[in-house]
Amino acid sequence: MKFNTNSNAYTIVYASIMVIIVAFLLAFISSVLKSTQEANVANDKRSQILAALNLRDVENVEQKYNETILKALVVNVEGEVIDSVGGFDVESKMITAKNDHDKKLPLYVAKVGADTLYVVPLFGRGLWGGISGYLALKKDLNTVYGCNYTHESETAGLGARIVELEFQQKFTDKQAHADTAFTAVALGMKKKVENPKTEVDMITGATLTCDGMDAMFKTSLSPYKKYFIANHK
């Protein structure tokens, strides 16, 4: 039997069958691989949190994470702990919710050596796309212990340098707030550093990425203010 491959009916039926086959195929593959992909994403997140605690190039990320992170709390802007276990699974859109009172803020409590450390997530915008990271604070909830940043698509060699260890180490021992009353977030990036206790020198040629970083510290840390005031030691 020979079809007229140029007839309208043939074309429509051909296209429909094609689309149905492809849809089933893709749906099948996606559902088979979903759990592996989600495990990869979760592991990547764990290794970023560990990197903020200066634990880099870890062999078994999941094991090390479970040993290091004692609790993953969720707090709200009022400084109250609303969930004492679910911090890891809070979606980023809940952390960055527009309305302050809708925010669910994860806070990871870690133990490295004898130190108790607190890790908070950071979300901001760089030049070409999102930037994010984790900031580890000492138990005074003010002194930076370590940090880790990632970006979606900053310029290679300029803005993309925020992922480099050498750059991230510049934040160690900075103060996140100007005073212990936590009135305002002071950690930031400046072209001309006036207060070396809280400011880090910008990367030359990456002004917009660094401005984005500067804003990221302010918007990501300020919702924790009440928790910090109530819990710093």
Binding site: F3, T5, N6, T11, Y14, M18, V22, L26
Partner: peptide, 17 residues
């Protein structure tokens, strides 16, 4: 079997898949 009028679309669908 490909209808010539939609051959580019069919090619795209195969590649995209």
């Amino acid at each position: 079997t490909i209808p010539s009028r939609i051959r580019i679309i069919i090619q795209l669908v195969v590649v995209a898949t």
